[in-house]
Design a protein around this nucleic acid. Sequence first.
RNA 1: GCGGGCGUGGUGGAAUUGGUAGACACGCCAGAUUUAGGAUCUGGUGCCGCAAGGCGUGGGGGUUCGAGUCCCUUCGCCCGCACCA
Length: 935
Amino acid sequence: MEYDFKAIEDKWRGRWVEQETYAVKEDASRKKFYVLDMFPYPSGAGLHVGHPLGYIASDVIARYKRQCGFNVLHPQGYDSFGLPAEQYAIQTGQHPAITTERNIARYRSQLDLLGFSYDWSREVRTSSPDYYRWTQWIFARLFEHGYDHAANKAVSISDLESLFSQSGNANLDWAFGEDTLNEAGQELWGAAFDGHFTALQWNALDDAGRSDVLMAYRLAYLADSEVNWCPALGTVLANDEVIGGKSERGGHPVVRKKMRQWMMRITAYADRLLEGLDAIDWSESIKEVQRNWIGKSTGSQLRFDIEGHAGRQIEVFSTRPDTLHGANFLVLAPEHDLVDLIATADQRAAVDAYVAETASRSERDRMAGDRGMTGCFTGAHAVHPLTGDAMPIWIADYVLAGYGTGAVMAVPAGDQRDWEFAKAFGLPIPPIFEGHDVEAGAESDKRAVLCNSGEWDGLRCEEALPRAIAETAAAGFAEPRVNYRLRDAVFSRQRYWGEPFPVYYEGGVPKLLEDQQVLLPEVDAYLPTEDGDPPLARAAHWNVQRGDRMEYNTMPGWAGSSWYFLRYMDPHNPASLCDRSKSDYWGQVDLYVGGAEHGTGHLLYSRFWTKFLYDLGLIGFDEPFAKMINQGMILGRSSFVYRVEGTNTFVSFEQRKAHRTQRLHVDISLVKNDVLDLEGFKAWRPEFADAAFILDEHGQYRCGSEVEKMSKSKYNVENPDDLVERYGADTLRCYEMFLGPLEQAKPWDTQGINGVHGFLRKLSRLYRNAEGEVLVHDGTPSPEAERALHKTIKKVTEDLDRLSWNTVVSALMIGVNELTEAGAHERAVLQPLAATLAPYAPHLAEELWELCGGSGSVVDADWPKWDASKLVEAEVQYPVQFNGKVRFQFSVATDASPSDVEAAVLADERTAKQLDGRSPKKVIVVPGRIINIVG
RNA sequence: GCGGGCGUGGUGGAAUUGGUAGACACGCCAGAUUUAGGAUCUGGUGCCGCAAGGCGUGGGGGUUCGAGUCCCUUCGCCCGCACCA
């Protein structure tokens, strides 16, 4: 056999393990390259052909860069804490560690089949105590740090304590959140301090009081917050784990509930997370998702007095204070604190009814899309700060309680929603833009020129806005303000299978427990206790290690995945999470490959933790992933049969319309070219054993088909193990890359794999014929063979440099086709060809490299360089256009100058024929490309 | 509604800075070979036309000697966010 892929792949897989081919070490004399895959959650289902796509792509680049002389770090590991293993544990009593271990073993065996160049000695697992020890350590540092906006970095809480004891909290610009304090803390903050305290007051506080105050400054803090509680899963979910009111995993209902939770003050980093996006090479769509998620808006916070409520004011955030002259009413969210206070007697019943109605229908209606404007007048009025005019105060559910201050100043001439509200309730629309027809809709164009706006008349937004922000602030009724949509992240989960917190409580005060590692305890069941405490509360000897009790919650799935890329650099370090010398050497991930579904989760949190670790001086860079590529999904091609209703008769695709039919998925292994294997179908499932068929004119049963997501229930899953068995790993690797651009979603088509398999076979035949005789010899290659080789090297190199994985396979195919035609069997050609093939088909490349007498492993073979002089042909063929249409081909010496070419082509008889007596107006010669004659 | 992306043969796709549109494959057609296997080899294959030639990158318009590529406009599809003040 000329291409015995099975023997070849077994042989080299074994050698690589034996010789530790893929182990890497730091080497200061060499340039590094770090290629990383998003590590998988080891699910029980195993891999389908879609999963390895990104791994193959990153492996190709890792191997290419290594051949180019880089010291390449290309590790793999497992995100092994998570819900499915826990769910399985609840059902079966099986410890999640055992399930996880088994799934990892299965994953590993499947990955090993594909010939990846991972350095497995660096494997990490987030659920291993040696790993989560450092996740806990990072948490502890977050607990011990706050964020100083003046210094624009994380700063130690102990520094803050000494500042407090010297001068209270005056003049500090640290990130804090008074609204997330617990009751005692809010009491202290509001009643005792009114937001400000002196050194004297601070020094007089007891341990619990100080803890309450400091909590408002910590980056990891405890707060009574509204959380997404999922009763079915018995746990809290982060916002990005809730989709349309249902849990992302399992689709269970989620409700809002107030709970005391650990939180992460990611909002402190909002600005840096936003700015950092400009410096990284990610897809515009993911950057945009993150920008939207952070949702920064700049403007003013304005205060409006309320008629008849001296001392009370309504605070409003606006990005367009320059339109203040057009504001003629206020709108509060129905949940706003002041609604109850200001509603007048005659409007109270209506207000109460509207508030109740909003509360009851909020969930479902929020999803319903556009509803008409609803709202209700409170009867109260505010005072316009510039004109003193009375402004009616309304409530409406288009104003969200959770954003800004939960109140807006309505400018119907400038905001479409305000305009619609004004129209719906017959409120006036004061014009504030020159030439604007207020009946036609709001003026959203920022280039519109203001009028009826006092000193700002004649200005556009660009000039008026900064003045408005400054002047309203100077006038004393507003302050410049930046608002974010980003919320702090909930960091507690009521689960078993996650990192335990290194925290105990003493008199209700949380303290770090760090002189020994807090390990995940054994429990008798993986469910909450009868009191509703999380599963960890069941652990009898564990739950009081110090103080009164341990923290029973565990950390969310994203904790371990927020820093794993660092641990690969120094995976076994017992003294620190990653030695600074190692992280300085390996640095940022140069290429990160993974799915796009983590835009607001993993990819935001890991940026946040990276910036924090940078602030602490633990690493020297503050963005983890310099460049990222998101692979598209590989879709399955499902096949369908059509059962005539109420019978066991199946009708072929074309004739199905003549019957009332039911469409059923059929296993794709029973279908070839849309034609059903009838006997196979009958044997597939018992109920089809006596199936009858209505066939088409060729006597065949033709199936319908559709491209959908791969899933077991659709019987359209292609399994990589089977394909490796039939075609070999090298074929599968090449084929997955050949399918199309990596980032694009594309359907899987098993038939196409034959073409790629044939290519590798044809390539093998250059080296060894069907009888197994070696054809490689030391003769001098023909110019055609050399040209084919160097053309291929050039194309493959350039394509890999621009990460165009799919076109590389085409280039190799063309090269092999040309070399076959040229009968090239010379070592001088075939040895570099093997090196060029190595990133895509490493097993076969090793075999052929060895066969050519190459030294060492092809993995370390120098990447071949193309020789431009070998590419030059004596003559160039020019397509000759007349008025833009190609009429004939014209050969001319390569070294002819453009004017020589012009003269030669004009002298050609075919040119005369095309011109038919006319004289050319213009002749364009693009050297090496094209000739265009106008005339 | 807003944001991002994409529309090229029967299919996946190629065309990197404007320079022969459809490379490379799949599929299909024809032939060869082979005691039917999901094998191999050769040739053909965008559309119309016998041909010369014409038409062709969702549609319309423009810039240019030349447009899949740039500009304007319009239609359709996919993804994300969704009343963010």
